[in-house]
Amino acid sequence: MQLISTLYRRFAHLIHELAKFGTVGAVAYVTQVAATNLFWYGLGLPELAGQALGTVCATVVAFLGNRFWTFRHRSHGRLLLSYALFFGLNGVGLLIQLACLWFTVTVLGLDGPLARNLAGNVVGVGLGTLFRFWSYRRWVFRAPRQAASEAERG
């Protein structure tokens, strides 16, 4: 029991940050799925265009939630740079999603609502999320100490 308590104390900040990231991600995910399906089935857009536009909507939600809640304690010095990095890294996450969707539709030949949603909105979002959490902490919402030491060096 003491080991668990010690581990929790050591990683409490990361655990709380990850929980907030997950909450923001859940809201962004609902936005993603709803918007993507609206673009696909409500507006009749092609699968890649609908996925891309749904992801852009979710990205706006995620930036606001992460900037002002999840990582509010981290460096926010350069808002425009943070914004550009966030959207650039989300572009990489989007490419991961699109690759999963493309592979499922084009290579596997599975093209229906279930296949599209599993490929783009489950597998693609899952893999993209792992990349996003790591990259946000590393480059966008850096710890104040890390940001200050990099500014001194560069």
Rank of each mutant, 00 (worst) to 15 (best):
Q2E: 09
I4N: 15
T6Q: 07
T6I: 15
R9M: 05
R9A: 15
F11T: 11
A12W: 06
A12N: 13
L14C: 11
L18P: 02
L18M: 05
A19P: 04
K20P: 02
K20V: 05
F21A: 01
T23H: 15
V27C: 11
V30I: 13
V30Y: 09
V33L: 08
T36I: 01
T36Q: 02
L38E: 07
W40R: 08
P46F: 03
P46H: 09
E47F: 13
E47K: 02
L48E: 04
A49P: 08
Q51A: 12
A52L: 12
G54H: 06
T55H: 08
V56E: 00
V56D: 00
C57T: 08
V61E: 04
V61K: 08
F63Q: 08
F63E: 10
L64F: 13
G65L: 06
G65I: 10
F68M: 14
W69F: 14
R72G: 01
H73R: 11
S75L: 07
R78Y: 02
R78Q: 07
R78N: 05
R78V: 02
L80G: 14
L80I: 12
L81P: 11
S82W: 00
S82D: 15
Y83D: 05
A84E: 00
G88T: 04
G91C: 02
V92H: 01
V92E: 04
G93I: 00
L94W: 02
L95G: 10
I96Q: 01
L98Y: 03
L98K: 09
L98P: 15
A99L: 09
L101W: 00
L101E: 01
V107Q: 07
V107A: 10
V107K: 04
G109N: 02
G109H: 01
P113Y: 07
L114R: 08
L114T: 14
L114I: 05
L114C: 10
L114F: 09
R116H: 04
R116F: 03
A119G: 10
G120S: 05
V122Q: 01
V123E: 01
T129V: 12
L130C: 09
L130N: 05
F131V: 08
F131S: 03
W134K: 08
R137K: 12
R137N: 04
W139E: 05
W139Q: 10
F141I: 09
F141L: 05
R142I: 10
R142H: 09
A143N: 13
P144Y: 09
A147D: 03
A147Y: 05
S149N: 11
E152R: 14
G154R: 13
G154E: 14
G154N: 13
